[in-house]
Design a binder for these strands. Sequence first.
DNA 1: TATGAATGAGCGTTCATTCAT
DNA 2: CATGAATGAACGCTCATTCAT
Lengths: 225, 225, 225, 225
Amino acid sequence: MGTGRPDHLTPRKMPRQARAVVTLDAIFEATIQVLVAEGMQRLTTTRVAHRAGVSVGTMYQYFPHKQALIYALNERYLDVLAARIEATCRSQQGAPLDRMVEALIDTYWRAKTERPEITRALYRSVAEIDNEAMIAAFCARVDAATTGMLRSACDATFTDLETVNLTLVTVIFGTVRNAFERNLGQKEADGLYRQLILLCRSYLDAVVRTGGQCQPDSKAPAENF
Amino acid sequence: MGTGRPDHLTPRKMPRQARAVVTLDAIFEATIQVLVAEGMQRLTTTRVAHRAGVSVGTMYQYFPHKQALIYALNERYLDVLAARIEATCRSQQGAPLDRMVEALIDTYWRAKTERPEITRALYRSVAEIDNEAMIAAFCARVDAATTGMLRSACDATFTDLETVNLTLVTVIFGTVRNAFERNLGQKEADGLYRQLILLCRSYLDAVVRTGGQCQPDSKAPAENF
Amino acid sequence: MGTGRPDHLTPRKMPRQARAVVTLDAIFEATIQVLVAEGMQRLTTTRVAHRAGVSVGTMYQYFPHKQALIYALNERYLDVLAARIEATCRSQQGAPLDRMVEALIDTYWRAKTERPEITRALYRSVAEIDNEAMIAAFCARVDAATTGMLRSACDATFTDLETVNLTLVTVIFGTVRNAFERNLGQKEADGLYRQLILLCRSYLDAVVRTGGQCQPDSKAPAENF
Amino acid sequence: MGTGRPDHLTPRKMPRQARAVVTLDAIFEATIQVLVAEGMQRLTTTRVAHRAGVSVGTMYQYFPHKQALIYALNERYLDVLAARIEATCRSQQGAPLDRMVEALIDTYWRAKTERPEITRALYRSVAEIDNEAMIAAFCARVDAATTGMLRSACDATFTDLETVNLTLVTVIFGTVRNAFERNLGQKEADGLYRQLILLCRSYLDAVVRTGGQCQPDSKAPAENF
DNA sequence: TATGAATGAGCGTTCATTCAT
DNA sequence: CATGAATGAACGCTCATTCAT
């Protein structure tokens, strides 16, 4: 199984030398700095290279074109994020559902808000690239981790684990993203954080109790994404 | 009270003539088409004008610059969306909570998925503009409508309506957005739709029952957005 | 003998109606205002028309294109200037040379400095048009007037009136123009004005006394304009 | 002490490499050629770059925008001109007034007429830029040089050297400029050249004899530049 | 291998001019 | 005739990308 990354977005070479790693890091860091300080519109290869302390030519040795840079940046970010989620899920193996939910939310929330301007910058940068495959790979990793965690819950079993898991992660990730868009203040953010935990717990409670059926009065929506 | 729209993003003139309305519509439609067909990167003024069947010059009679066009497009879209939500909220005045939740989710879901490629295109276009004010205005409108609806529920009262309302809309809007990013299939989407309703209902149930307190085992997250 | 004005710069119609005269005046006045307030670069037909309170279309009924407007503006200005010089020359018929010189300088100086920002604006606008013919016509008029005046001097006769006259007007006109470029202060300007009179008088004195011969130590310059 | 050149008109980089000097020269030369051949209106960045045999991009590596190019062109020209005037003034230190006057006029006349089409082109180009500071710097340099020269004259001293100097250079420079506008023929030009020398000599004579006072019959003109 | 000057396609924008109303 | 919306050629300028050094 590959990385899901399209060929044309693959970095040109994998750094074997320490120097290359340093350079790559500098480029990524510079990209983020420019993104944060100047926005997507002003993210030019020249500016990034300059801030990274390398020449444009060097940058093109690591990334065949600008899109690949942004792609790699997001990939790297998602990789770290996925790893953190995996760690959390591992640490919650066999725990009760309530703790799992909170741990998951806490991890994701923390990851997104500890450097909010970076999160924001990446949210914006991602709109410019064709990231379907990247998202898919990330989702697959996260789904595997969270599904595994949920399955191991000491106080519950699920008849339709896939659906529950999908709902949970979609709600959590989506809520955090929306919270960013709303530019919440500290107090509102704290409140939302707590409510999100309550909300997910209530949901899992209901699912475990009733088997996850819901009776909408109307029929399901005809359309799709 | 103004629209919250920054001055420099205000369309140059308000159409008074029928012809102008037609032209404006053509421009908006063309913008969406280009956005859908070619993506944000290839959304050039020339291309939009060409597809709209007008000259660039004409476009610049309606919009002082490209950003204003994208801004107006999103504004118009959010305006329709807010109106639909308001209508739903009005129609649910005094209804039971369960119905309200379903109606709200149904309305938003429908609005976003009936022409999914447009939703997708707008999600991407919005990353390019400074839309804080626009989002804020939209949120204010929606919050007013949903808060009013929830307050009128025949089967519940809330001690902290603001928080509950914020949670509800953030979760619903965020979940839908995330669902788009995940590119769900028909079956998964239908499932998620139903689960979202269940989830929101469970949450409101819990809130009404317990007063909305949740005991996280850990302290609240230190960071903010 | 015509006006020396190239065909393509001729205004489209001579106003026979009072209304037309008013409109024309408004257009000229607006042109000057825009020129003074915004500079040549921002002198657009739309702006001029707007300030004149007419439509672009109307402007194009009086001037076949923008250049014609600027041309006509300068022509009109030079016409007034020439008329003032002619009047002065007429009034000095038979006067002594000293008075003639002073009257000529005074007239020209006054004309150029009574609304200096307009003089400046026109100096700049003229660089954009092909004004050779216009200048030639103006010079011819002025030369005729000043030559006539000088010939009538009660206290002098000239062996080479043409050369003396050319020198005189070139020096006077050129000095004033250069003074504008130097942005002189009030005191310096006053001083220069007086020195210019002294200078021209000394020159005429010398010419009358010696016949206008000068012995340059070197030969004449090889080049030409 | 700076150059008096506004920041935004400063060339982007000073050429350190021989290649850069060649390129810069080519750009300047091309600018003049386009200016002479096509006029200010058709002086486009593309055209200049093309004629210089470089790309537009390269041009923008040397000049931040078109105005800076024109500004630099004029600056360079004035620099050479000022240097020539300074050289002349140096060479005339301690000479008699008559020789100084002739040398100054000869230098300026020669400089302006040896490539008259360039002089003409620059006269026109300068109308488009904000050149006050440039002119001021040029005047200061020239004034220093000529004042120094005049002060050293072996056959005269001045009670008001500043005024005399200002008059002299303003008259000389202005006369030459006006002569260009009149498009004089060879014979007239030669005549004017000689008369200009005579005129300046007569003036200085008068100044030295009388102390530079002149009794205008009327009062000084009220207006200023 | 690293560099950064050079490239030039392509962008956003302007504005003189036209012509249907 | 007057209008001013529409036109579109042409401009100034940017920046991803290349390649000689």
